[in-house]
Computed example of a mutant assay.
Amino acid sequence: MKRMAALCLALVLTLTAAACGKKEEEQPQEVTGEQYSVAALKGPTAMGLVKLMHDAEQEDASFVNDYTFTLAASADEVAPLLIKGELDMACVPANLAATLYQKTEGEIVTLGINTLGVLYIVENGNAVRSMADLSGKTIVASGKGSTPEYALNYLLEQNGVKPMDDVIVDWKSEHSECVSALATGAATIAMLPQPFVTVAQSKLPDLRVALDLTEEWDALDNGSALLTGVVVARREVVESNPAAVDAFLSDYAASVEWVNANTADAAALIGDYGIVEAAVAEKALPYCNIVCITGTEMKDKLCGYLQVLCDADSASVGGAMPGDDFYYGV
């Protein structure tokens, strides 16, 4: 009996030691933080960052990484800095990310989607209730030869409307011209992005959102999505410390969640940073489709969207579809 008891005790001690050893092995290693310079464009693609931007400026900030942020008026300001290595990460239009990937021979990686579609069909009237209702109509829009045109044509085609034959699109050079055309009565239907929709409605109280093009795309149920912006990083940055990049994405996701849950406070920060006027931001935020989508879901949605653009004009994505190494975490 004593021998049996001793054997049982030895077995218990062995199992306990093994369990403790396993727990020690499972302890996550401490992440070494990095100093990241991040840029974003003034508009919806920067809105989800504002909480992170604000908190990173505080003396008691407790992030793993140190962040500095730059806000730019256009992608033309950001792209050269990213290519030269003066920026680590940037929030840019989805198709520009693919173009930079090709231009740098694969040195740009997409970390996540930060903004879904922000395009809407607005109308002074009640004639448009579906994409099919656009047949025989005239639409004012801005963005000919770029992603808004390709997205509109794709949705029209998928709904049985021939873009060149069934619909007249009066292309303007700027969104503000579309708003002016609506205001003067020269047009009754327009394709506009947020926050210009909100701006237009402030001037034209009877202007109605007829179609949300993001919802129209989702209704096709093909796994892709209408996108506006993504967050990218230089491959050197990603490969040097993936854990720090993951920490950034976690911080970004928390910022997006806060922005979507605290519209008024988020709008105030957006105004403070000069991204969009606070009053406009508060009304527009619920319709800006700000997200932080990563991994396989990011790849599926982004790849499908880029394929639509590539089919319309391969130059819009840099000449060819990006490879699998363009998508982080998959």
Score class of each variant (00 low, 15 high):
T188I: 01
G145A: 12
T184K: 09
P205M: 06
S224T: 12
W171E: 13
N153D: 15
A186P: 03
E215I: 05
Y150K: 09
L152K: 04
Y150L: 09
E177M: 13
L220D: 06
F196R: 01
W171F: 07
S180T: 11
I168V: 13
L156K: 10
E157D: 06
V209F: 03
T147Q: 13
L156R: 08
S180L: 12
S180F: 09
T198E: 13
A200C: 11
A200F: 12
E157G: 03
T184P: 03
L213I: 12
C178E: 14
D170P: 03
E177H: 06
D218I: 00
K203M: 12
P163G: 10
E149V: 01
P195T: 02
S146T: 08
A190K: 12
L213H: 07
T184R: 07
E216S: 10
I189P: 02
P195R: 01
A210F: 03
L213R: 06
Q201W: 05
V167A: 09
V199M: 15
A190I: 07
V167C: 11
S146C: 02
V209W: 02
Q201E: 10
S142A: 15
A183D: 08
S176E: 15
A219W: 05
N153V: 04
L182D: 00
G143A: 08
P148A: 07
L152C: 06
D170I: 07
M164A: 15
A181P: 01
A190W: 03
S180R: 15
S176H: 11
V167I: 08
A200S: 09
L192Q: 00
K172D: 04
G185R: 08
T214G: 01
D218T: 03
Q158L: 06
E216M: 11
V197T: 00
A183I: 07
D218W: 00
D166C: 09
D165H: 05
G223I: 03
N159K: 00
V167N: 14
T147K: 02
S202Q: 15
R208E: 00
Q194S: 04
V197I: 07
T214Q: 04
L213M: 14
K162R: 14
V167F: 15
A210T: 09
A186K: 10
A183R: 14
N222A: 14
F196H: 02
D206W: 01
I168E: 11
K203Q: 12
A190F: 12
P195H: 05
Q201T: 02
D221V: 12
A219F: 05
M191F: 05
I189Y: 01
F196Y: 07
V161L: 14
E157R: 15
P195V: 05
G143T: 06
G145Q: 08
D221F: 02
V199H: 02
D218C: 01
A219T: 04
V197F: 00
V161F: 11
T147C: 09
L155V: 09
E216D: 08
E149W: 11
T198Q: 13
I189N: 03
Q201Y: 12
G223D: 02
K144W: 02
L220M: 13
Y154W: 13
N222D: 15
A183N: 15
A151P: 01
L152G: 03
E215G: 06
A151F: 02
F196P: 00
W217G: 00
P163C: 13
E149K: 12
G223M: 10
K162V: 10
V169G: 05
T184S: 11
